[in-house]
Design a protein around this nucleic acid. Structure first.
Lengths: 207, 207
DNA sequence: CTTTTATATGAGGATATCCTCATGTTTGTA
DNA sequence: TACAAACATGAGGATATCCTCATATAAAAG
C-alpha cells in the first residue's frame, strides 16, 4: 500500500566510508539531515533537500545511505551515543550529591540537548522506527538515569529507582515539548510546577 | 518545496452536506479517516485509503473535503467537541468532591478516550497543524480542567489552578503515550509513580 | 412528470519523491 | 608515475499521491 516503508525487511546495507573524504562527507550529510529533519520532520524531509543542505549531490547521498530510513537510523544512533556520553560525564560530576541537585542538573542538560537537537526527537518518534529499536533506546537512557540515581547521597530507596527513572525520562520529554506547545504565560509556571512536583516527590522518597 | 502543505493559505472551502445522505457520508468518511490516521499516521495516510475504508469513492471524498488537511481539521474539531462535552459532563458529576477523586476520574476518562481514539493524537500533533489552532485547542481543554479544579471541595489555591491544569494536561498525554512506549514491566510501575507524584503534589496544595 | 440540485463515480493529469546508473573525478598506493 | 579503488555527479525511470473533471444517478422542488 505504501512505497517507502520497512519495519522488518530493509535488506540494503549502508556502505561505510573508508577514506577521509568519505568520513567528512558522511558527517556533513548527517548534519544536513539533522537540519532538514528538524525543520520539516522525518516524513516531509526529502533526500534532495538533505543532499543540498549538505552541499553534496543526490548520488553522493545514496552512496552512503541507500534509503532515507538509513539516514534516520544513523542520526538516531549518533544522537543516542552523544546523549549517553553526556550522561556518563554527568554521572562523574555529581557522584555523591543529593538527589535534588542531581535531578536539577540532569533536567537542565537533557532538556537543553533536546532543544538544541530537535532532529533527535524527529527521528526518535517517526512512525517507521522499529518499535524494538525504540524500546532499546529508551532502555539505554533509563539505564543511565538509574546509574545517576544510584550514586546519590543519601541513597534513594532501591525499589523505586527504576520507576522513578522512567517517570523522569518522560517528564524531561514533556519539559522539552512544553516549550513549543504553550505560550510563555502558561509555560513558565507549568515548568516551575513540574519541578516542584518532582522535587517534592523525590524528597518524600529519599530521606 | 513541498506539494501538499498549507499553514496560512488553504483557500479552498469545504462543502457542507445538506441532504441526509450527505450527512451520513461525511460521518462515514470521518470514521474511515479515523481508522486510517490511527493506523498510518496523518502523513502516510492516503486519500484513497480513507475513501475505501469509508466505503466511498475517491470522488465522493473530495466532494466534501477538498484536501487531506480539511479531513484532518474536521476530525480534530469533532474530537475536540466530544472531549469538551465529556469534560462538561464529568464536571457535573464530581462537583464538590475532593481533588484526589476528581483528578482520578479525570485521568481515567481522558486517558481512556485517548486510547480509544488514537486518531485524535495523530491529527492533533501533525506537523501541518496551524500552531494557533493547536494552542487554542489546548487552551480549551485546559479551561475545562480549570473548571473541574474550581468546583472542588475543599478548594485548591486559586493562584495555582492554571499551572496545575497545564501540568495535568501534559501528564495525561504522557500516561496515554506511555502505554505504547515501554513494556509492561516498566509501564505499570511508572504509571503508578506518576499518580502518586501528582496526588502528593495536590495534597500539599489543597488542604 | 419535469426540472433542478445534491451526491456518486473512477479514469487520468500533474506533480513530486525515491532511487538507479553510467560516467567522470579524486585519492591512496605500489 | 600509473593503477585501482573509493567517491562524485545529475539526468531520468519507476512509482505513488493528490486532486480534477466529465459524466451518471438519486432525490427534492415546482
Amino acid at each position: 500500500m505504501s512505497s517507502q516503508n520497512s519495519s522488518p525487511p530493509a535488506e540494503k546495507t549502508a556502505k561505510e566510508p573508508s577514506r577521509s573524504r568519505g568520513l567528512k562527507r558522511v558527517s556533513a550529510l548527517l548534519d544536513g539531515a539533522s537540519a532538514v529533519f528538524a525543520e520539516a520532520g522525518y516524513e516531509a524531509a526529502t533526500m534532495t533537500q538533505i543532499a543540498a543542505r549538505a552541499g553534496a549531490s543526490i548520488g553522493s547521498l545514496y552512496q552512503f545511505f541507500p534509503t532515507k530510513e538509513h539516514v534516520a537510523a544513523a542520526l538516531h544512533a549518533r544522537h543516542l551515543h552523544a546523549l549517553v556520553g553526556m550522561l556518563d560525564l554527568l554521572a562523574g560530576e555529581v557522584r555523591g550529591q543529593p538527589v535534588e541537585a542531581v535531578v536539577d542538573a540532569l533536567f537542565a542538560r537533557f532538556v537543553t540537548y533536546l532543544e538544541d537537537n530537535p532532529a533527535f526527537l524527529a527521528v526518535g518518534e517517526r512512525r517507521s522506527l522499529d518499535p524494538a529499536v525504540k524500546k532499546e533506546a529508551r532502555a539505554r537512557l533509563r539505564g543511565r538515569i538509574v546509574a545517576l540515581l544510584g550514586a546519590v547521597e543519601p541513597p534513594v530507596a532501591e525499589a523505586r529507582v527504576a520507576s522513578l527513572a522512567a517517570v523522569i525520562l518522560h517528564l524531561i520529554r514533556v519539559a522539552a515539548l512544553l516549550r513549543a506547545d504553550d505560550d510563555e504565560n502558561v509555560r513558565a509556571p507549568a515548568i516551575a510546577e513540574l519541578r516542584i512536583m518532582l522535587k517534592g516527590h523525590l524528597a518524600g522518597q529519599g530521606g
